[in-house]
């Protein structure tokens, strides 16, 4: 994809991800959140966080299957929005449901397992958000960065379980999230198992023997960074997509 088009698509994604937050704020301003506005806002932000976590995890499979490498550019946006909605979810609970009482929040958390599970999911996302910048990716190195960012799976699993645990009887929605999550995690498991089998010691040794050492970090970075940053400048500018 052309650099300018990619930048525009990024803007498109950035703006659309903010739409739920904007409409929630608009409805709150106009007293249109229904009879229990606090509960509604908590539910909507929580649901948005889950949706964005799923979208984040959808990027890599979609990119690999479709071969459209530029899709990777949206992963960070989705991930940061997931973090944003999860923070909003917690802050609304803390400020409006628990009336900013730290002891009230902690005592409620100690008693309610689903709150512990949910907070785990949120806490796990903090280092991911902090290390989401290009500078941090470079500093950590692609391999370590990717290992750290597998915590996103923990956040997603915690988020979905957190939702499932508090539903009264109608478990259809949390189960739907669980289904999607199972597919997304299952895909990764299959990829992992497939890569492992042929690449046992002999092939690994061959790789190491054949590839110059200096090249390997580039290979890793190419997977980590949005691909266009490496590929695009070399390709002719008006290459058809």
């Amino acid at each position: 994809m052309k650099e300018a088009n990619l930048r525009f698509t990024k803007l498109l994604v950035l703006v659309n991800c903010a739409v739920p937050a904007a409409l929630l704020a608009w409805d709150a301003w106009n007293h249109q959140l229904g009879a229990n506005p606090v509960k509604f806002a908590i539910l909507t932000t929580g649901m948005s966080a889950l949706v964005f976590l799923m979208l984040t995890m959808l990027v890599t499979p979609l990119r690999k299957i479709s071969g459209l490498n530029w899709i990777i550019s949206f992963r960070r946006t989705f991930g940061l929005y997931a973090f944003f909605y999860a923070c909003a979810h917690f802050l609304i609970f803390f400020a409006l449901d628990r009336s900013l009482s730290i002891s009230g929040t902690l005592s409620e958390m100690a008693k309610r397992k689903y709150l512990i599970v949910g907070s785990t999911g949120l806490l796990v996302m903090v280092p991911l958000a902090v290390t989401s910048t290009n500078a941090m990716i470079k500093r950590l190195g692609g391999k370590r960065w990717r290992a750290l960012h597998r915590l996103a799976y923990v956040a997603a699993v915690a988020g979905v379980i957190h939702y499932y645990m508090q539903v009264k009887a109608d478990t259809r929605q949390p189960l739907a999230f669980m289904g999607v999550l199972a597919i997304l995690l299952g895909y990764r498991l299959v990829v992992y198992l497939r890569q492992r089998r042929p690449n046992k010691i002999p092939s690994n040794a061959r790789c190491k023997a054949n590839l110059p050492k200096k090249l390997s970090p580039t290979v890793v970075l190419d997977r980590t960074f949005p691909s266009h940053e490496h590929v695009e400048p070399k390709s002719p500018p008006n290459l058809p997509l």
Binding site: L11, L12, V15, N16, V19, P20, L23
Partner: peptide, 9 residues
């Protein structure tokens, strides 16, 4: 941009 935001909305 506008159309996509409206659709998401």
């Amino acid at each position: 941009l506008a159309a996509s935001a409206v659709a998401t909305g």
